[in-house]
Design a protein around this nucleic acid. Structure first.
Ligand SMILES: [Mn+2]
Ligand SMILES: [Mn+2]
Ligand SMILES: [Mn+2]
Ligand SMILES: [Mn+2]
Lengths: 215, 215
DNA sequence: TATATTTGTTAGTCTATTCTAACTATTTAA
DNA sequence: TTAAATAGTTAGAATAGACTAACAAATATA
């Protein structure tokens, strides 16, 4: 069985590979808050296990095997988050830290049961796709709210970022997935956006709007 | 935070202290399937942390602090088992291995929510008491079925042992907690007991009867 | 292009947890 | 009450994962 440490590295590497395909050591070190040499030695180990391709001083490439393995951990993480929200009444800002631990539990039955009880959900509480049992991850074609034009009506589908602070901010504005948002105005100077939803009228910064994924 | 290893040691030591109060190294080694020297060095560490009293070549004594700590882990273990059975539809023979992992999750909220959703249960699915948040464990005054006399009608309340094999045996005989059992006959030669319950008539060995706790 | 900055690597150390081999104390039993 | 058996200890080593200090390669910048 892979250690929790190995699983956490793999997950980070997989996530960084989504945007750039090639991953660098420094990024991993920052994400996991460990030193560069720690990453270097773990990377060699992961390469030895066939999860990565590694050449000295070259960016890393995750292999299909690595991708597969990472997807299974992410599957467990996201199923857990969904379960905590849907079945145990947690808020979407409370579940990540718990899922970070439960994702390492070794028990296919446990996660299959969650999946079943949830009715085989496709997304986690933050709108991110839940990989299926084969490791396949649906690619979601959402736009950023920041790219919408005044007059458009869109539905909030997912978040591009899920920090505690951001989730709490969204809670304070009553912004949740599924909410229909109408773009009223876009200030060209700072790209602040005035929106209306659910009887609310708010001005959202471009920072926020770039993290709200809509369709 | 205490490591999983430390937590597993503490739990074993606590459990062994219930019967004899004094615990010996060999018992711990057997329960955890590790070598004697491993236990020896961990025991010194636990003593250093104030969980045990240790003197060379003397049996160990668990301290109040150690008892407290162990109770909190056992609380998480048993709440988890109850949750898995009651809310997720697992059989009582399936839950121990999952609970063995979940008991190490660091999230008071997670277990408090389980507790709440379960309606603050007093026992786990095998009839063992769930320690309360202060670490207090109710002592259950049950008798062994083996000590009952022909003619007595008793209710199965808990198990003195919870191995997979035993639980599966009980499943095969449709014996579950809460079942009312009438003692029909007791064979003095081998102490086999003939019992009737739920429309079943079975002959149970003394080995089995000594592990069935009734009231 | 030459230099400065950033990024990645190596060497060596540390802690946690485990092990085997060798030894010592305690307990049991002849 | 001595010898045998059992239980516990020490020493020394291994592995996993992390770190700092020192160095090398790659990249950015003047
Ligand atoms: Mn998460
Ligand atoms: Mn994790
Ligand atoms: Mn159990
Ligand atoms: Mn455990």
């Amino acid at each position: 069985m892979n250690s929790q440490s190995i699983e956490n590295y793999l997950k980070v590497i997989f996530n960084q590979a989504i945007s750039t395909d090639e991953v660098n050591t420094t990024g991993i070190a920052q994400a996991l808050e460990v030193s560069l040499p720690s990453v270097n030695s773990m990377v060699k180990k992961l390469a030895g296990m066939g999860f990565l391709e590694y050449e000295k001083y070259r960016p890393l490439k995750i292999t299909e095997k690595g991708r597969q393995m990472a997807a299974m951990i992410i599957r467990k993480h996201r199923l857990t988050e969904m379960y905590l929200v849907e079945k145990m009444g947690f808020g979407w800002e409370e579940v990540h830290d718990i899922a970070e631990q439960l994702e390492h539990v070794q028990s296919p039955l446990f996660f299959d049961r969650m999946d079943e009880l949830l009715g085989y959900p496709k997304r986690d509480p933050h709108g991110s796709p839940i990989p299926n049992k084969k490791g396949h991850i649906a690619t979601l074609e959402y736009r950023m709210l920041a790219d919408c034009q005044p007059g458009e009506k869109v539905v909030l589908k997912a978040l591009g970022h899920t920090s505690d602070a951001f989730l709490k901010y969204l809670n304070s504005k009553n912004l949740a997935l599924g909410v229909e948002v109408e773009v009223i105005a876009l200030e060209m100077y700072d790209r602040n956006m005035t929106v209306v939803y659910d009887g609310h009228r708010e001005v959202l910064s471009s920072l926020v709007c770039s993290k709200l994924l809509v369709s």
